[in-house]
Design a protein around this nucleic acid. Sequence first.
DNA 1: GTCCAGGTTCACG
DNA 2: CGTGAACATGGA
Length: 297
Amino acid sequence: MVSAEATTGNRHLFRVRDYNLAATLDSGQAFRWRHTDEAWTSIIGDKWVRLTPTEAGIEARTASDVTDWQWLKDYLQVDVDLEAILRQLPEEPLLAEAIQTHRGLRLLRQDPWECLASFILSSTKQIVHIKQIVEQLCSRYGDPVDTPEGPSAYTFPTPDRIAALTEPSLRALGMGFRAPYLLEAAQRVDSGRLNLKQLRVRTLPKARAALMELPGVGRKIADCILLFALGFSEAFPVDVWVMRALRSAWFPNEKVSLPRLISFSEAHFGPYGGYAQQYLFHHARTEAGKIHPLSTS
DNA sequence: GTCCAGGTTCACG
DNA sequence: CGTGAACATGGA
């Protein structure tokens, strides 16, 4: 018996409604997706993937034949009941507006190592630049991947590959003071001193504390890994954009410190706060792009 | 040239 | 706990 989704070959249709592919892949949770004529292309694990939104759902295409598509189903989180999650978020104007504007924005389930390494490189960097550095890292130290045609593609380099590098060779990719942080993280993961997969089955505070033992990983970056890779949907990364959104919408003309905003978000947004955070973040960034950078009113 | 970017760390009240 | 400076680099 063949189920509706058991397509063999290099194409597969994920029947899913309410999935905003553009918002999901371009909202700063993953850094390797490229948008070309209606489709999104990236490397997941060791596979080249192209995704196209269609009426029926998401059409996926790979370079070579695939028999089990579970890895991609997990990555995209197509089985998540988004409506049920959104119903559990507080009903407030700014959040409602963000959800309305970017209806169908989802959270991905990424590889923990790639997510950790990428966000170590993210601190005080614009997303466009993070993408550039990540691509440099992959093309220089990743393994080549089969593609249908076009430019060559590479995997995200494994921890042991990066662990064997030197700080200057990483700095040569333009990552600046983040280079020693990435190197140290790679060495700890490679040596087994940090077991990323095991963090999934720990409590959120313990998993967060384990991540924050890494140099260059504070509360915000730790929460990104917890939310985007380890499945902790209550994690709520507070970056500059979310910080501004929280201050303007929840604490207008009040001086609220970052630690207070963090404890507020922890108590206020609940078990799926991470979704609220991602809507607020994406909404803030896209709204900012619509107005002139210098118009502050 | 100036400002800012999905922050973290360290020093100091 | 709260604040301020330093940290590299490049896009706007």
